[in-house]
C-alpha cells in the first residue's frame, strides 16, 4: 500500500513555516459568528438583529493535547467547531491551522490539504450517518473526494483497516447504519473521521447520546486512538465529569465567549471565574456522602440575541459590580497558562 503522501498532489511546503514547538496547531483569533435575524414581509426581508452565537472566541490547541470545551446549551460550542472546519463562514476574526489563515483565498488543492487534517465527529450517531449507504461507502467517501485516483481495491483495504482500528469487524462494512447500536454507530463516525489520517479531530458531544456503560467504551477507544495516531482533540461536551476525564486543558464558554481556560487540574482546583465555580457546584455527585454547599444561579442564561452589556455573565453573577455591566473583561492570563475573563477573579 502506498502512503498518503504519494497521493498528495501538492508538496507539503504549505505548512513549512509552522514550528510545532512554538505555535499551537490550531488557533482562533477573535472569532465571531453572528446569524442574522430577519423580519420578513411579503415584499421585503430586512435584518433586524443578530444571534451572536460566537462572539469573540480566542482559543488554541497545542499539538497532541485534548482541549475540553464546556458550556451550557446555546453557548456556541457547536458553532465554534463548525466554523473551525469551515462549515460556517465567520463574521469576523479568523482560524489559523499550523499558522495558515484558513479563510484567506486559496486554491482548491490547498483547501483540501487543510481540510484533510481537521476532521469532526458529530453528536448524534443516528443523524450523522446516511441511512441509505453501506458503512463501506460511508467511510470510503473521503477517499473518493481527496484521493480520486486511488485504486478501488486500495480504498477498500484502507476502510477495513480503519474499521478494525475502531473495534469493528470486516463484515460490518457491508451493513447499513440501522443495523448498529448507538455505540457502534459512533465508532463508524469516528472511523470516518480517521479515514484521512487527520491531525486534529473535533469531537462534538461524541458520547452524550450514549448510555453510561457504552460511553465508557467510546471514551477509552478515543483515548487509545489519540495515542496510536498522535491526534489532537477538541472535545466538546456539557458533562463536566466527562470533560475532566478526557481533557488536558479546559475552556469554559458562556454566551459565545470564553470565560476561563486553564489546564484541567488547575481549573478544577483553583477555579477563578464565578461562572465556572457555579457550574462546578451544580453537578450532582454520584456519591450520597458528599454534601456540598451549592451555588444556585438565578434565572436562565440570557438569549444570545440581546446579550447583556459588559460581561455576559453579570446579570446572574453574585460578585457583579458596576464595571461588570459596562465593560467586557478581556481574556487575561492571570497565572501561567490560566486565562480568565473576569474583573474580579478568585485568585
Amino acid at each position: 500500500m502506498r502512503s498518503f503522501e504519494e497521493y498528495e498532489v501538492i508538496d507539503t511546503d504549505l505548512f513549512s513555516a509552522w514550528d510545532p514547538n512554538k505555535f499551537p496547531i490550531l488557533e482562533t483569533k477573535n472569532l465571531k459568528k453572528w446569524f442574522p435575524v430577519a423580519e420578513q414581509s411579503l415584499l421585503y426581508s430586512k435584518t433586524v438583529n443578530f444571534i451572536k452565537a460566537v462572539d469573540g472566541v480566542n482559543l488554541f490547541l497545542n499539538k497532541g493535547e485534548t482541549l475540553g470545551l464546556v458550556g451550557e446549551s446555546g453557548c456556541g460550542k457547536s458553532t465554534t467547531s463548525k466554523t473551525i472546519i469551515k462549515l460556517e463562514e465567520p463574521t469576523e476574526g479568523s482560524v489559523y491551522f499550523k499558522g495558515i489563515d484558513m479563510f484567506q483565498p486559496m486554491t482548491r488543492v490547498e483547501e483540501l490539504a487543510i481540510k484533510r487534517q481537521i476532521q469532526m465527529v458529530f453528536q448524534d450517531p443516528y443523524a450523522s450517518l446516511n441511512p441509505r449507504r453501506m458503512v463501506l461507502d460511508i467511510i470510503k467517501e473521503p477517499f473518493d473526494i481527496h484521493f480520486a485516483d486511488m485504486p478501488y481495491e486500495e480504498k477498500e483495504a484502507r476502510v477495513l483497516e480503519i474499521l478494525s482500528k475502531v473495534g469493528l469487524e470486516d463484515y460490518h462494512a457491508l451493513r447499513y447504519p440501522h443495523e448498529f447500536s448507538g455505540g457502534q454507530r459512533q465508532r463508524i463516525g469516528i472511523a470516518r473521521a480517521l479515514a484521512m489520517n487527520p491531525e486534529v479531530i473535533l469531537l462534538d458531544e461524541p458520547v452524550s447520546a450514549l448510555d453510561v456503560s457504552v460511553q465508557a467504551q467510546i471514551l477509552n477507544l478515543l483515548h487509545d486512538l489519540q495515542i496510536d495516531f498522535k491526534l489532537t482533540y477538541m472535545f466538546i461536551a456539557h458533562d463536566l465529569s466527562v470533560i475532566k476525564h478526557v481533557s488536558d486543558r479546559v475552556a469554559v464558554m458562556y454566551l459565545g465567549k470564553i470565560m476561563e481556560m486553564a489546564p484541567t487540574g488547575e481549573l478544577f482546583r483553583n477555579t477563578a471565574h464565578p461562572y465556572t465555580i457555579a457550574l462546578l457546584s451544580a453537578i450532582p455527585r454520584p456519591d450520597p456522602r458528599i454534601k456540598m454547599d451549592r451555588i444556585i444561579l438565578e434565572g436562565d442564561p440570557p438569549s444570545p440575541i440581546n446579550t447583556p452589556s459588559g460581561c455576559p455573565f453579570h446579570p446572574r453573577c453574585w460578585k457583579a459590580k458596576e464595571v461588570c455591566s459596562q465593560k467586557q473583561p478581556p481574556l487575561e492570563e492571570v497565572k501561567p497558562n490560566h486565562y480568565v475573563s473576569c474583573w474580579f477573579p478568585e485568585i
Binding site: S213, Q215, Q217, N220, H223, S241, K244, I283, R285, P286
Partner: peptide
C-alpha cells in the same frame, strides 16, 4: 458495581475507565 465504575468521576484523575463489554 460495573455501572458505578464506568462513570468518569470528578474526584479522580485521568485514568482508563472500566467498561461493561457488549450492549444493553
Amino acid at each position: 458495581k460495573a455501572l458505578f465504575d464506568s462513570i468518569p468521576s470528578l474526584e479522580q484523575d485521568k485514568t482508563r475507565l472500566a467498561t461493561i463489554p457488549g450492549t444493553v
